[in-house]
Simulated assay, not measured.
Amino acid sequence: MSEDTSRNRLGRGLAALIGDIDRPAPTQAPVPTADRTVPVEFISPNPRNPRRTFADAELEDLSASLKQHGIVQPVVVRPSKTAPGRYEIIAGERRWRAAQRAGLTNIPVIIRDVDDRMALELAIVENVQRADLNPVEEALGYQQLIDEHEYVQSDLAQIIGKSRSHVANTLRLLKLPQNIRDMLVDGSLSAGHARTLVTAEDPTTLAQKIIRDGLSVRQAEALAQKGADKPASASAKHVPDEKDADTRALEQLLSNVIGLNVTVNHREKGGEVRISYKTLEQLDDLCRRLQR
């Protein structure tokens, strides 16, 4: 995917495609108008939806609300490729599931005729903006766009409105063993804690200690560096000058791109980025890159 193509596609604006249907709206903003109503049995979930977990309690609460008020925000769908007259969900699967529990026979929909790539992109954006994805689902969604549609991390950062370091750090969670991912999914571990485990010698033991002792992210980082089998010292509770996992990941990302050692020193107000070179040839190459 070329840079110009990416810019043109992104420049159209996601709001134009989904009509701001799932973003928090101002109090007096009009509700998006549905294109039509469709029987619930004519709608199928998207098997590629990045969201895999639907809490039963949340569905029950939403179902009770739908019984009283109906569906306010239409579900976004696209025409099925294989079954004429049927539709596949792009955004709003939770509402569709709750509507079935509530006994609704028809639901309002907004129809968008988009390809697989855009459908997946819209599903990820909607879920990330609503904070509906757990960290593992978010990472898997990003990886799916990279593997199947040749996205790069800078594209993803633009699409979802996050920093490139956020995308890189989220993707790093996929390096964790499955038992650690399960802890992320059920909420036992936060994404910040999980990032400290990516380079730990024994991530499972450290994860269990984090949960058992209620360690902060900084304490977990200190333990990951010293080894999960060593007890946390008093100094580990206060590591004011220790770089967090995000900063270290950013340093690694910049070092990989430039080919030179990069250090980032962030302070309360401002900071510095330092690039180290060993030869004049490396310096000349860096200057040429910056001039371009």
Rank of each mutant, 00 (worst) to 15 (best):
A232C: 03
S233T: 14
A64I: 05
D115Q: 05
V125I: 08
V167E: 02
F54C: 06
P74L: 06
L171G: 07
V128Q: 14
Y142Q: 11
E126H: 05
L173E: 02
P79H: 01
S255D: 00
P240E: 06
S44T: 06
A131V: 09
G259K: 11
E281L: 12
N46T: 02
A234F: 13
S165M: 03
D213I: 03
I111A: 03
Q291P: 00
L66Q: 04
T170W: 02
W96G: 01
Y151L: 12
M183T: 01
Q282L: 09
I18A: 12
Q208H: 07
R86V: 05
V185N: 03
E60K: 12
V109W: 02
A249G: 10
S255G: 08
R36S: 09
V185W: 04
K237H: 11
P135M: 12
D229Q: 14
L254Q: 09
A228D: 03
S154W: 10
R112E: 07
I275A: 15
P50F: 10
N134I: 10
E41Y: 08
K230F: 11
T27N: 04
A91G: 10
H149L: 09
K243W: 03
C287H: 12
D186P: 05
L173S: 05
K175L: 11
S65M: 05
T105C: 02
L59Y: 02
P39L: 11
Q219K: 09
V38M: 13
T53H: 15
L184H: 08
R23D: 10
A57C: 02
A99H: 02
V239E: 05
S154T: 11
Q178G: 00
V262W: 04
R289I: 08
Q158H: 08
R212G: 00
P84F: 08
P108W: 01
N265V: 12
S63Q: 03
A119N: 02
